[in-house]
Write a protein that binds this DNA or RNA. Sequence first.
DNA 1: GTCTATATTCCGATAGAC
DNA 2: GTCTATCGGAATATAGAC
Lengths: 196, 196
Amino acid sequence: MDKTEIKPAVQDSTEQRIFEAAHEVFTQKGMDGAKMQEIADRAGINKALLHYYYRSKEKLYEAVVRAVIAQAIPMVRKVLESDLPLEEKITRFIDFYIGIISKNTFVPLFIISEINKHPDHFFENVLPKELPQPQFFFKQVDEEIRAGKIRPIDPRHLIINIISLCIFPFLGKPLMRILLGMTHEETKQLLEERKN
Amino acid sequence: MDKTEIKPAVQDSTEQRIFEAAHEVFTQKGMDGAKMQEIADRAGINKALLHYYYRSKEKLYEAVVRAVIAQAIPMVRKVLESDLPLEEKITRFIDFYIGIISKNTFVPLFIISEINKHPDHFFENVLPKELPQPQFFFKQVDEEIRAGKIRPIDPRHLIINIISLCIFPFLGKPLMRILLGMTHEETKQLLEERKN
DNA sequence: GTCTATATTCCGATAGAC
DNA sequence: GTCTATCGGAATATAGAC
């Protein structure tokens, strides 16, 4: 028991706190909008420490992006690669996904935005080793179509449809609120309802 | 014919060129990512001139936002307020919308992103005088449900669904391309197909 | 490891000549 | 109206004391 350092998964080390603060700020404001000062403030430490742990803003950003991607990929794989029956699979995915995203509203917009603005960061540096394999999902859809269980559809469109209907309502929440003239409460409730 | 200045709608004045350059840069990079230098470069003029025509970066940004909103609002009104039969209305909207957005990929993401990052700019300064009125649309949907023409659905969800399915595929295009392992060409073709 | 102070870079904005 | 040159502030990054 004389380890000099305990290394539990959840540790309140400075590095950890910095990372969490950076995660918040970057996902909400993007690479350009994020300021090192704000990150330092939220972490309750000094600007200089940011550079001590992560050499530069860019490196810190990369760490966050990597974490965000690492969290997102398994969710997608889960849909594409599990061998549950299609409908069940989709239902589960939607439940699971809407749960996550409700608590983490900024992440999807962050991913989409930053891919557009800084494609290099995503594709040169932070690309995950193992991309999801959609082939299995394609095959499954084809089978269910042949069995007459679902109407004929290009499986890629099906995926896009599902993802669109799950993600966009959250992305566009503020916009919709204005268009439909709703209060925050109504908006929140409406999104809850969508699990149908 | 001795007017000192001709004032056609499409004029290649410096102010016009600045605005167009600003429109490109702001919609692609957002308020924070956009740099005055880049706007000047694209307009083929000097940084100082930007300030001559538009006093500040913020003012220039506002001008762009105003234009973007002014262009977007009528599109939404068209769906919500015209008195075509519902299905026809939706079909037309989709055609029309996908046409526009294909040429103007960045605008929707710009709107959604900037609303999240700078709500003040959108809601304090640039709010359009006249918001679309969804009530008419709601009523129409109700009627068609009662007539048994469409299955029962909260009209707000219907709107959200339509918009999601139209907009998100473009927002998420780069993401989808990676997930599904497609080439640019395949992606483009897939989006074309979606008018179904 | 953590801080203060300072260097460095970048960018929006202004002054002033033409 | 348009340019060059420069100011001033903000933000990233480093030096160095503790």
